[in-house]
Design a protein around this nucleic acid. Sequence first.
RNA 1: GCCCGGAUGGCGGAAUUGGUAGACGCGCUGGUCUCAAACACCAGUGGCAGCAAUGCUGUGCCGGUUCGAUCCCGGCUCCGGGUACCA
Length: 888
Amino acid sequence: MDYNFEEIEKKWQRYWDENKTFRTPDDLTNPKKCYVLDMFPYPSGAGLHVGHPEGYTATDIYSRYKRMKGYNVLHPMGWDAFGLPAEQYAIQTGTHPSETTRKNCDTFRRQIKSLGLSYDWEREINTTDPKYFKWTQWIFIKLYNTWFDEKLQKGRPVSELEIPDNIMKSGKDEITKYVDSKRLAYYDNALVWWCPECRIVCSNEEVLYDGSHEKCGNKVEKKNLKQWMLRIPLYAERLLSGFDDLEWPEGIKEMQRNWIGRSTGAEVDFIIEGFDRKLTVFTTRPDTLFGATYMVIAPEHPLTKEITTDEHRESVADYIRAASMKSELDRTDLAREKSGVFTGCYAINPVNRKKIPIWVADYVLTGYGTGAIMAVPAHDTRDFEFAEKFNLPVICIMDPDVDDPEQKSRVREGKECWTEDGRFINSSDENTGININNLNKEAGIALMIEWLEKTGTGKAKVNYKLRDWLFSRQRYWGEPFPVIHWENGEITLLDENELPLKLPELEKYLPGDSGESPLANADEWLTVTDSSGRKGRRETNTMPQWAGSCWYYLRFIDPGNDSRIFDPEKEKYWMPVDLYIGGAEHAVLHLLYSRFWHKVLFDLGIVSTDEPYKRLFNQGMILAYAYENELGAKVSADLVEERNGKYYNKETGAPLKQIVAKMSKSLKNVVNPDDVVQKYGADSLRLYEMFMGPLDIIKPWDDKGVKGVFNFLARTFRFFSNQENITSGKEESTDILKGLHQAIRKVEGDIENLRFNTAISAMMIFLNLAVKKGKVTRETVNIFIKILSPFAPHLAEELWRIQGHDRSIAHEPWPEVNEELLKEDIIEYPVSFNGKLRFTIELPVNLDKDEITKRVLGDERARKWLDTGTVVKIIVVPQRIVNIVLKK
RNA sequence: GCCCGGAUGGCGGAAUUGGUAGACGCGCUGGUCUCAAACACCAGUGGCAGCAAUGCUGUGCCGGUUCGAUCCCGGCUCCGGGUACCA
């Protein structure tokens, strides 16, 4: 019988649909549950690319396997459908974004369904559906009404916020101000990145290092705009400690840790000479205070202008102006060479009451720490560079731990910077009573902090790189904020029962140049009047695309619920997500934002787990072959021909080099899953994506490889659908039985560990064995089809039917490994002399060391090598190897 | 610059994490089938030497630990990802 994949796949996809084979069980009493989630896609107009099915197939195999293991499996799919492309298209053509979105979702759904993925389609969600974003808005209201109790390290309702007495006495406005300063969501003037091309603000995270917008590649500018912000740094500690019990790749945890950027140190107050003011700095090295020879404040620091003396006013003003220009130009070029100007003003070093000059320089950042530093050029490379350039004194206060006497003296003389450990010198003062001489770095830091706190000149402090999250966009196609700005400046949020706040219909989608959302044109929608006649205006910004994806995994649990975000009983049953697979490009942002929201919901008692995603896995990107000529210029794939394994330009005949590159339209090397499904079938596509290599590595697509797995499936079908290959008897031969159980064990272990490539290889090995044998029993066929079914479900269903079963294989129990069958009674020992393998010898498994030695030495083949020297030592590792050490 | 990965045949990759390097697949070579080709099937396939048995060599490079290293340690080279003066 021929392997007619087209017919088979259509047939079973229809069967699964009609029989609701993959509907999530309602029964919440089964203690075995498994929530398997894909990062849901943004449905772009281009349709699916081969990268999508990679992760989807992996989760599908896992889900199908878990069902067969008796688990209740939740495996849903949906659409992260708010986003810029649909809106850009609307600007160009006038087509409503919802129209574009609907079409794209239809395409994605059709394509995904053609892969035979076992999603419960009754749970499909779409972030642009008002029934969905009603709850996104609802969560925003929760964020707004929550403050973070730092003592308890926990978010709490603002109704529980204690207002200090002095504020209570200052009146209603002050109270509001105080409460607003505590809310997790706040509305404020902020210096934000603005992309003139997209006419949108970007969060810090969305601006690339060269100052360009991640989405469009154009340069961004700074703008001062009123925006919604979320106080994510308050959760920094929780976000860091939450990793402990998560099965995530170490690399991703590390990236998030770096992003959060925790550093410990101290804040130190310096008195500014001639002012009744203090300049507070953050430092990780309070131990080096004696080496502070000058200070630097950022150009944007509020004190900069105030402390500048008349004599230096002009140069400082020039410098500030130049610095503000720089941030709008290319910021990377200026990254190397230090610049700065003297303010004319001095500060007093608290440890020795010495006067040190205060400079302005842009190597000190406004947004980090206090926006000012104490500079210790002898022990900080940046400060050292600056001091060299401007001839500022370098005072070494640490005898470095270094053997090289020349380097040691260079450091001692202040000619070289030393940032490592050593013993402090010149670090005491009788008047202030501090002495850390002879201590090392760690002890010095501890003692100095103690002194700072005792004298009230500073305190221990933890700082984070993580900043407040800019949470609004000047766009139409996003969730509207449930917010009203009243004419008296008051802000109120809609009541829960007023949700969802839907988007108004618009004629034009073009945002204003000045940072106004297109919603500003929706007059009727925009204006509101309350019962007392007070007029207000709705928030015209919308939420960023992250919003919908921050919590979608929760909605899948109970997607149809109109009265609550979800049923808590169901949430308790299904959470956390047991396996979450997606691309590493979301390693920081999506996962960090999502964890943040989840923790807030946890603190408010809305969800039952502290972390949303228990096990995370990142699939590697799928690349494609591309070609370049001798000059390194890329050549479009349709101009390439292959001769004898070498590549040439069809038109010019010039030799080309095959390289691996991202798939791109311009290189014409994009692989469309639809084409692969048509040519080889969905099972082959699935199998190939898994067989290419480990799930997490980057790998190039090779059409020839698809043929390889197709051959395997075709051979499988031919062999097992042929009744002549099935023995009438019940007794299976021992070699087949052993091979079969080896395969079960390997496939099972590999699925658990997401190592699908080797699982497939194990099944290939078994098929080769069976074909060679010629005949196997019905039971063997049944078992093999079962272990193949998560990988190639259509083929498996068809073969299952051919064996005479009338129900789907999807819920059949997974076969048990019989360990007895796997026991070896004979081991093939490699025998090596001086570590070099010389021959192998088959010996019974239960021989002891002496017996093994005897047998090996008695072997005829050993003599040849024994004659070349005298035996020094014989190493026998039972069931592993024998190594004989000879001395010549 | 810093942080995190990685480097194994012609290619994708495998190796119980210290114990027979190259599983499985692709490609290639030879054979069977065919008028022929494709498909399918059988056999071979890291490199060098040899008719062969076999020997030497071999996991990016240099060195070390060990009876034994793709795996551990030290020092490099190259590639990929993240990050950008974070005090």
